[in-house]
Amino acid sequence: MIFDDVTAVWNQFNLTERTIEHLWMFSIALTISVILGIILGIILYQHKKYAEPALNGLNALETFPDMALLVLLIPVAGIGEVPTIIACIIYSLLPVTRNTYTGLVSVRPEILEAGTAIGLTEADIVRNIRIPVSLPMIAGGIRIAIVFTMGIVTLGGIIGAGGLGAPLQTGIVLLLPDVIIVTGLWVGILAVIFDGCAGMIEKRLTVRYGEW
């Protein structure tokens, strides 16, 4: 029976524990990249001349193969969770930063002018107009970051980071199709759930704060 097979694999490879590890790494990596990304986006907004080179730099990092990045991080950060989280952040920073920056700069000019004309200061405008209006866009960036982070945390299994990548790696090395299918599907389901939730939040923000 399929259910029994799944349970057997689940128990044999401690998938509950692995899932917790996995989500723990995922949360830390995502939290850090979101905070860093938003801060960086705001800094780039305040210093627009650095925006293009910085975003191009992040773009270049993005094109680097993730597997190679993990390997390159070994001499710097060793193996395990730390380099995995670092890699996640490197990849997720771009979408969050880029969307924050783009959101802040692309508020409709007539709205900004109305703000100036009724007597808002530059800081009032950032706080009361630019940031709220950017929220849907920032949420979109976070949503991309969620997908990236999920993928790279799984890849971390190669360099001993634990999480769901570990049983997957074992399955690949020892040619255990059951394990590959069960773990792979589970990672997929998790990604779909998170992406779905993020999508819902993004949609709500768009309805609430979006332009019409």
Binding site: A114, I118, L120, N128, V133, W212
Partner: peptide, 30 residues
């Protein structure tokens, strides 16, 4: 200039209401 503008009502064709704020918040922002 900020003080000056807060004491001059300004109404334009494009209206420029803040789409992310409800009517009450738009009026009550300043």
């Amino acid at each position: 200039e900020v003080r000056l503008r807060r004491n001059i009502g300004y109404v334009i064709q494009q209206i420029g209401l803040f789409s992310h704020m409800n009517v009450g918040d738009n009026i009550g922002l300043i």
